[in-house]
Simulated scan of single mutants.
Amino acid sequence: MTSDNSEIRFDTKLAVILRDDLAAWQRLNVTAFLTSGIGSRFGEVIGEPYADADGTRYLPMFRQPVLVFQADGATLTTAHQRAVRRGVATAVFTHDLFSTGNDRDNRAAVRAVAGDKLDLVGIAVYGPRNAVDRVVKGASMHP
């Protein structure tokens, strides 16, 4: 195995903002769902498959860190507005999705509410570093 210790810098950033009043299981669930949206849409964020020393192959994962933030509801709403206004790729998870059980019903629940009225519990954003930095402004790193 060769080692290259040079720093890797990414021109893009992938970030998740979670509402700070969610239960632990909700935070994990929302993060998983939101990041799947980014990974499915932007193939360039996915790295190469993994393999262990025995040759067992594993699925690829994101090629860059996923930064997870938390914020109160108002800050999350502001971040969503910034993302939409800036045209940053955004995945949303609303409170209504905790009571649905499949993708069809999830999409219908989001479609039934105007964007500025969504009861957001989390968003994921992906785009140029500086644009994502502006979107997440005001949110704090998740503990």
Rank of each mutant, 00 (worst) to 15 (best):
L97Y: 11
Q26V: 04
Q64E: 12
G115Q: 10
T2E: 10
A124E: 05
A71F: 07
G73R: 15
F69G: 01
R19P: 03
T75M: 07
L67V: 15
P128T: 00
V110L: 07
Q64V: 14
R107L: 12
S36L: 15
V66A: 05
V121P: 03
V113S: 00
F42Q: 10
V30R: 01
G115N: 12
S36K: 09
V135P: 02
H142F: 12
Q70D: 06
L97N: 03
P143K: 07
N29C: 03
R86Y: 02
V45H: 01
S3F: 14
F10Q: 09
R9G: 04
S36M: 13
V132H: 01
F93T: 01
V113D: 00
R27K: 15
G115L: 15
T94A: 03
R86H: 10
R27V: 01
R104S: 02
I8C: 02
G122W: 02
S6L: 15
Y58I: 05
A124V: 08
G87D: 11
V16I: 13
M141L: 15
N102S: 14
I17Q: 00
I8V: 10
V135G: 00
T2P: 06
A108S: 11
S40W: 15
V135L: 02
E48N: 07
R57F: 14
A89P: 07
G115K: 13
A71I: 06
R85C: 08
T77Y: 04
G101P: 02
P49E: 07
I38R: 05
R134K: 11
A139C: 11
L97C: 06
D96C: 07
S36A: 04
R104V: 12
T35F: 04
G39E: 01
D4T: 12
A15H: 02
T90I: 06
Q81D: 11
L97F: 10
D54E: 14
H142M: 09
A91H: 04
K117Y: 01
S40R: 15
Q70E: 14
V84Y: 03
V136H: 01
A79V: 07
H80I: 05
D54G: 13
R111D: 15
L14M: 15
L59N: 08
S40I: 08
T12N: 09
A83P: 07
F62R: 02
F33T: 10
G47Y: 13
G101Y: 07
H80Q: 09
A112M: 07
V88K: 01
V92W: 11
K137Y: 10
L59K: 12
G55T: 13
N102A: 05
P143F: 07
